[in-house]
Nucleic acid binder design. Structure first.
Length: 108
DNA sequence: ACGACGGCCCTCG
DNA sequence: ACGAGGGCCGTCG
């Protein structure tokens, strides 16, 4: 029973993002689905962008579904750096073997 | 309360 | 494999 007419809560997204283990990445679309709004991928980005706690929330582990790193409030370069620091390789602004590091949530 | 812009995703050429 | 266009949902000014 998800809130169909209820907008996505930031805490919901943050909570899921926080659950992402190190060395793994997820996509905005997956997050959107996890919150019950598969079409709200864009909104997810807006929420992550509105995130004021990039330290407690590894929003840098969220990338595009097409393999692109996407964006980052603190700078895409930093995002890439962090990802590589976690063992994820990036080629030309795109995640290498994204499928291998793609993390999915439990949609119950 | 309203209009404009995104850290997007998908389909088509 | 790449480029362009539409759609969907929040946030910001």
């Amino acid at each position: 029973m998800s809130a169909l007419k209820t907008p996505i809560s930031r805490e919901e997204v943050f909570k899921l993002v926080k659950k992402i283990p190190r060395g793994m990445v997820t996509t905005y679309g997956e997050l959107a689905k996890a919150v019950g709004k598969p079409k709200a991928a864009r909104a997810i980005g807006a929420i992550l962008r509105a995130n004021t706690r990039p330290i407690e929330i590894p929003c840098h582990r969220v990338v595009c579904s097409n393999g692109k790193v996407g964006g980052y409030s603190l700078g895409v370069d930093l995002k890439i750096r962090l990802l590589e620091q976690e063992g994820i390789r990036i080629k030309n602004g795109k995640i290498v073997n994204l499928r291998k590091h793609l993390y999915k949530f439990n949609s119950t």
